[in-house]
């Protein structure tokens, strides 16, 4: 037997305890099963279902300002911060007036109802345009939407300047 063989024979001789394998396996942290991930997915789905009325309605935190001229949709689309929204109908819920609004999304038309206690456009003449109160808008009017806290006047001025030219 060569030195190499003797060395290999010696080195291969030690044997671990019979229960080492069991102890190793017991010491491993548990595997996360598909059930675990399905549980997380179900929780997320439940949260989405609960909060969807808020999350799914991008107009909720917005203030609607009205511009009654038809055909402005193309110009409104120029600004990513604004969306062309059509006033579908005036309606009443429990005696209270609401606006039925609809706008286009990649997933299809989206409807929402808003109370018309919204700021009106500035008075006629201040920016050279016509003033409308939201409650008095005709059905089919195109609305422009502004995020809250952002002064809508610059945009209105821009539209009116275009109209003036």
């Amino acid at each position: 037997m060569s030195e190499e063989q003797r060395l290999r024979q010696l080195l291969s001789a030690p044997r671990p305890s019979a229960d080492l394998e069991r102890r190793i396996l017991e010491g491993l942290p548990p595997a996360r099963s598909w059930r675990h991930w399905w549980g997380i997915a179900a929780s997320v789905a439940l949260m989405l279902a609960v909060f969807w009325p808020t999350l799914g309605d991008p107009l909720a935190p917005f203030i609607a300002h009205a511009h009654a001229e038809q055909g402005l949709e193309g110009r409104l689309a120029e600004s990513p911060r604004m969306a062309g929204v059509v006033l579908v109908k005036h309606c009443r819920v429990a005696g209270r007036p609401y606006l039925h609004l609809r706008w286009s999304t990649p997933a299809g038309p989206l409807d929402a109802f808003y109370a018309p206690e919204l700021p009106a456009l500035p008075p006629r003449g201040e920016h050279g345009g016509r003033a409308w109160t939201v409650a008095g808008l005709p059905e089919g009017a195109v609305l422009a939407i502004h995020p809250p806290g952002i002064d809508p006047l610059p945009w209105i001025r821009k539209i009116n300047l275009k109209e003036d030219t």
């Binding site: 080195l11 291969s12 030690p14 044997r15 671990p16 305890s17 080492l20 102890r23 190793i24």
Partner: peptide, 19 residues
């Protein structure tokens, strides 16, 4: 285990290191 055994010279320690 055998590698740890021959390196450390201690069967108990070798098992701990394998774990």
């Amino acid at each position: 285990y055998r590698h740890a055994y021959w390196l450390m010279g201690d069967p108990t320690l070798a098992e701990e290191l394998v774990q």
